[in-house]
Every structure is written in structure tokens, then in C-alpha cells.
């Protein structure tokens, strides 16, 4: 009986396990192996050398780029959390009809199912030198010269991150908010708590799991990104993902692999820290 249960379980889980083994575990193992290989300009040669890591850790670029990666992650996290929490709070506690709630929630999530590339491209007419932002500000007399830092800058990179990833905060936080027992809030109010006190001492603590899940999504997406930084900075800014993709473009696979291994370890450490605060399976 017991064995039969395990057996059916295994059979049903087998396709998932097989796909993840082939396209997740094996690729990572390959990357780890190749990170110890040597490269010439045209080919990669099996070896066991630490050159790639030595180069990586002794290059001053590495630390600058790692700093930039953490900077993007931290700023994007703070902004998406603030915006996402506010939006979720409005939907969960201020909209009274369930239908409207679902409708507005869908409106927030629909862009998730459209193309990120197109969503990035769609910022160009806003941010360009002669774009909508600059011409509006000039016509209002706020500035005389077009602002140069709107497009192809840290500003545009972070703007795009916030635009793309805020809904990864909205969805889990909204989900935890909808499960908060409304009588807790009434109790807080009856006990004399102000709106702010209720928010800070009742709602925020109860939303922690949702905040954590959103944080894991946003932080890992931003840290692993390379295309948003490349496109929105016009190739003028770099993060770790771009180091990897540049190496790939130059066919320097061992070097790209070493960087990838370090990036993976960094991301896993960050997640391990975040997971101490939340049990994901309980929150679904």
C-alpha cells in the first residue's frame, strides 16, 4: 500500500523531474565544469584551471559591476515594494465589490502576459531627448535644456525594472491581504488604534509572507537580468548578467561560466536568507 503510493507518486512526478534534470540540473553542472576549462579565441578546451575565477576576482570591473547589480536590486526592491503594497492595499481594503476587485486586479496583472521587450521599447517615445517627458517639461518652463539622463541611464534602467516587475509584488501581497481576517482590523480600531497604527502593527506583519515572496521574485529577476540593463542603458551600464552575455558574445564560454557560477551562488545566498522568513508552500 505504502509502496504503491510512492510508486504512483514517482510516476506522476517523473515528467517534471526529467525535464528539470535535463534542462536545469545538467546545464548547471555543465556550467560549473566548463568554468574550469580554458578558452582560446576560437574554441574551448577541457582542463582544470582556476584562471577564470582568478581573473574574475582580481578584475576591478567585477566589484564595480557587482555593486551596480546590488544597487539596481535594492532600489528596484524599495520602489516595487512601496508601489506594490500601496496598490494591493487599495484593492484589498478599499474596493468593496468582489467583482470590481477581481477586475482591477486583472488589469494590474495583464501586462505580465505581454512581451517585456515591447514594454521596454514603449518607453522610448517618453524618455528620448525630444521625447514626451522633455518636451512637456520644456513647455511648462521647468527646464530650458532637454534632460540627458532620462534615457540610457540608471534612471531608465530602474524605471523599466519597476515597470516590468511591480506586479510581482502586487500579486503575492494582495493574496495575503485578502486572507487577513477583517475582524482583526475592527478589533484594533476598537482598542483605539489609529489607521496608521492598524496598518503598521496589524496589516504589515500579517502581509510579511506576501512581501517576502514578492521580494524573492523581484530581487532574483533584477539580479539575473541582462537584457533590461543592456536595452534601457543603451549598452552604457553593466551588471553581472551583462558580463556573462558579453563573454558569451565573444565565445569566452569558460569565463562566462565562472561569472555565472558566482552569480548563481550570490542569488542562492540571497534567497536562502529570504526563505528564513517564509514557508512558500504554506502560502499558496
Amino acid at each position: 500500500m505504502h509502496r504503491a503510493r510512492h510508486l504512483t507518486g514517482w510516476l506522476q512526478a517523473a515528467p517534471l523531474a526529467l525535464i528539470l534534470l535535463t534542462f536545469l540540473v545538467l546545464p548547471i553542472i555543465t556550467i560549473v565544469i566548463v568554468s574550469f576549462w580554458r578558452a582560446t579565441e576560437f574554441s574551448i578546451i577541457p582542463a582544470f584551471v582556476f584562471d577564470n575565477y582568478v581573473f574574475f576576482f582580481t578584475s576591478s570591473v567585477t566589484y564595480k559591476v557587482f555593486f551596480a547589480t546590488f544597487k539596481y536590486a535594492a532600489i528596484t526592491w524599495a520602489l516595487t515594494l512601496t508601489i506594490g503594497f500601496t496598490v494591493a492595499y487599495f484593492l484589498a481594503f478599499h474596493i468593496r465589490s468582489l467583482q470590481l476587485q477581481i477586475g482591477l486586479f486583472l488589469l494590474c496583472t495583464i501586462p505580465f502576459w505581454t512581451s517585456n521587450i515591447i514594454r521596454m521599447i514603449s518607453w522610448i517615445p517618453f524618455l528620448g531627448r525630444n521625447g514626451i517627458a522633455n518636451s512637456t517639461l520644456i513647455s511648462w518652463g521647468v527646464i530650458d535644456q532637454p534632460l540627458e539622463w532620462l534615457l540610457f541611464s540608471d534612471f531608465s534602467v530602474i524605471l523599466a525594472f519597476v515597470h516590468l516587475y511591480t506586479l510581482f509584488m502586487v500579486v503575492p501581497i494582495f493574496n495575503t491581504m485578502m486572507r487577513i481576517d477583517r475582524s482583526l482590523m475592527e478589533a484594533a480600531r476598537d482598542a483605539g488604534a489609529s489607521d496608521w497604527q492598524t496598518l503598521w502593527n496589524v496589516i504589515v506583519p500579517l502581509c510579511k509572507p506576501g512581501i517576502m515572496i514578492g521580494t524573492i521574485f523581484v530581487v532574483t529577476l533584477v539580479m539575473g537580468d541582462f537584457i533590461t540593463v543592456r536595452f534601457m542603458s543603451g549598452s552604457q551600464k553593466a551588471n553581472v548578467g551583462r558580463l556573462i552575455s558579453n563573454d558569451i558574445a565573444l565565445l569566452q564560454y569558460p569565463s562566462a561560466s565562472a561569472t555565472a557560477v558566482v552569480l548563481l551562488c550570490t542569488v542562492l545566498i540571497v534567497i536562502a536568507i529570504l526563505l528564513r522568513f517564509v514557508d512558500i508552500r504554506k502560502e499558496l
Binding site: L16, L20, L24, P27
Partner: peptide, 27 residues
């Protein structure tokens, strides 16, 4: 069914979600 090894497979699935995409591409 809580089969043996379910925990590992679950964490593998989560790993698949949070791993930087470029690693999958490269690997």
C-alpha cells in the same frame, strides 16, 4: 501523495523559477 523525494523536487522547481535565465540559456 507526499512521495519520497517530494521536498527535493519542490525546491528544484523553485530553483528553476529563480535561477537567472541566462544560466539556463548558457548551460
Amino acid at each position: 501523495k507526499r512521495f519520497a523525494g517530494a521536498g527535493i523536487l519542490f525546491y528544484l522547481t523553485i530553483a528553476s523559477l529563480v535561477i537567472p535565465s541566462i544560466l539556463i540559456s548558457l548551460g
